[in-house]
Design a protein around this nucleic acid. Structure first.
Length: 338
DNA sequence: ATAGCAAA
DNA sequence: TTTGCTATG
């Protein structure tokens, strides 16, 4: 299972406002997973419309994307394609965890143990085709581009920063840095106060910015070495070496120069090592995307959110008007919104 | 997660 | 204005 390399990364606290005028490639699955997992009622059930269909993702996407547009942030949502074969162990393990959590969720809900119900409901969160489809529709009405990655969304998003088509990747995972993303932002949210799980405590959460070059320069390594470190620690594609964390991995890679030499020195092996390195260093990505942002289609959004999904007309219209208002100061061309 | 409201 | 809390669909 993958562990993370955050202890050796350089983190900068920023504000949502600091991202104004930036182009952001948003890891769509990562973001949707968060919305579906967190946007719930007190008893652990998701937000639903009158037909009983989940709407948590639409709420999250609509309000967060609107906030970005108000700040002149230009988002593009990047969706996952086919995962690499080597990811299937991780995918299977996650599936088992989800299924076990779902059983516990049902039991907790029956016992009216809502604290545990929420916990297990969040752990059993799953994205389905309908959630993805509805998100793409809403984004289209909002005038936001979607990109469909051939394989991992994070590698596609990273590729787009390397090409200079976007400035930053937005995700909770650190993997995009391994894929070469020039910048990564975590905790991309507007609200500052966040409730701690299972506690009554509130805590400040601000966006965190990671700049790849700063990380590489600090440790005097190149990206290949960073990938080697991650593989030693463990990724979505390999288990990692027991008792080697990011700090020890960094030391070993600097001492021996490459993962192959480290493995020889400690007498260990990693299966499919070349294939794993290739996933990070030569990912399957596409140049077939077009990034254009259009003015939100107010009528279609109201029809979709309010008529089809029972959103409050008052709130939706207010939000859309606020986007328009923030735009009137700025110059814009006829067709394109930005 | 975010909006919106009430109390401090 | 800031903070704490509930409702949202």
């Amino acid at each position: 299972m993958s562990r993370n390399i955050s202890p050796i990364l350089v983190k900068k606290e920023v504000s949502f406002e600091d991202l104004a005028n930036k182009k952001l490639a948003i890891d769509a699955y990562n973001t949707l997973y968060q919305f579906i997992s967190i946007i719930r009622q007190k008893n652990g059930t998701s937000l639903i419309n009158s037909k009983g269909n989940i709407t948590s993702h639409l709420s999250g996407v609509f309000y967060r994307t609107s906030n970005m547009l108000k700040k002149n942030i230009k988002p593009v949502y990047v969706f996952d394609g086919e995962p690499p074969q080597l990811k299937f162990d991780t995918i299977d393990k996650r599936k088992i965890i989800r299924e076990e959590a779902f059983e516990k969720y049902i039991i907790a809900r029956e016992n009216k143990d809502f604290e545990n119900a929420i916990k297990y409901a969040q752990m059993s969160t799953r994205l389905n085709h309908k959630i993805i489809e509805e998100t793409v529709i809403l984004l289209k009405y909002l005038g936001i581009p979607s990109v469909f990655a051939p394989s991992e969304g994070e590698s596609q998003a990273a590729f787009m920063t390397i090409k200079g088509d976007v400035d930053i990747v937005a995700s909770q995972d650190y993997d995009s840095l391994l894929f070469g993303s020039t910048q990564l932002v975590r905790n991309l949210a507007v609200g500052k106060k966040r409730k701690l799980p299972n506690k009554k405590e509130y805590v400040d959460i601000t966006p965190e910015l990671y700049i790849l070059n700063e990380i590489l320069e600090k440790h005097e390594i190149d990206r290949e070495a960073l990938v080697d470190i991650a593989i030693l620690v463990g990724t979505d594609y390999n288990e990692g070496i027991r008792n080697i964390g990011p700090k020890k991995a960094l030391k070993l890679i600097k001492k021996y120069g490459s993962i192959e030499k480290v493995l020889a020195a400690i007498g260990k092996e990693i299966e499919n090592l070349d294939d794993i390195k290739n996933i990070f260093l030569h990912p399957n990505v596409t140049e077939e995307y077009r990034l254009v942002w259009y003015k939100p289609d107010k009528e279609k959004i109201i029809e979709f959110l309010c008529n089809e999904h029972d959103f409050s007309r008052e709130r939706v219209i207010k939000t859309l008007d606020e986007i328009n208002l923030s735009k009137t100061d700025q110059q814009r061309t006829l067709g394109e919104w930005f």
